[in-house]
Amino acid sequence: MLMLTPTAIEAVRTLTSAEGTPEGSGLRIFATENAEAIALAVAEAPAEQDKVLDADGSRIFMDEQAAAFLDDKILDTGLDPEGQGAFVLAQQDQTP
């Protein structure tokens, strides 16, 4: 299952609680049309087949392809090459 760091949880909460965003909104992660990448968007509600992850007040909606890809990942935050805030994926530690 996708794991979120505390900073990612806070970033999702901030994005989904912005003024004008409906109660219960979440960050939707979905495969692009050609399934070669994933995309992010704030959504009012999950799509019909989405898996929903609730993490300390932040909600993540994932389509089936994204959920399968993210199953062994950690969502964190960091800075992109231009110094802007961004989400970052890392592999979960697989050691027992």
Rank of each mutant, 00 (worst) to 15 (best):
T32Q: 08
K51H: 08
V52S: 01
Q65C: 08
A39V: 05
E82M: 09
A67S: 10
A35K: 14
F87G: 00
G24M: 02
N34H: 12
Q94H: 15
A86D: 12
I9D: 01
I60L: 14
G83K: 05
F61Y: 15
D56W: 06
L40Q: 07
A90E: 11
L89C: 06
A86Y: 07
L53M: 11
E44M: 10
D80G: 03
D50H: 07
A11W: 01
S25L: 04
S17Y: 07
R28C: 04
T21G: 02
L40C: 13
I38T: 08
I9Y: 01
A66I: 06
M62W: 11
I9W: 01
T21A: 09
V12I: 15
T16L: 01
E64L: 11
R28S: 08
V42G: 03
V42P: 04
A31I: 06
A37C: 09
L40F: 15
E36S: 13
A68R: 15
T95Q: 11
L4M: 11
L75K: 01
T16F: 00
A8N: 02
S17V: 03
V42C: 04
T95F: 13
A31V: 06
E36W: 13
G20L: 00
A68M: 10
P6Q: 02
T14N: 08
L4I: 03
L53S: 04
T21F: 08
Q84T: 09
T14F: 10
A43V: 04
E19G: 07
E23L: 10
G83D: 05
V52C: 01
E82L: 13
L4R: 02
R28G: 04
T16P: 00
M3P: 02
K51M: 09
A43T: 05
A39Y: 07
E33F: 13
L75Y: 03
L75H: 04
M1E: 09
A18K: 14
D80A: 00
A43M: 05
E36R: 12
E44I: 06
Q84I: 04
G85K: 13
G57H: 00
G24I: 02
N34W: 12
M1Y: 10
D56F: 10
E23N: 07
P6Y: 02
R59Q: 02
I29K: 05
A47D: 10
Q65R: 15
Q49T: 14
L4S: 05
I38G: 00
Q91P: 08
D72L: 06
L53Q: 07
F87K: 00
L15A: 14
V88A: 08
L4P: 05
E48F: 08
F30M: 10
V52H: 03
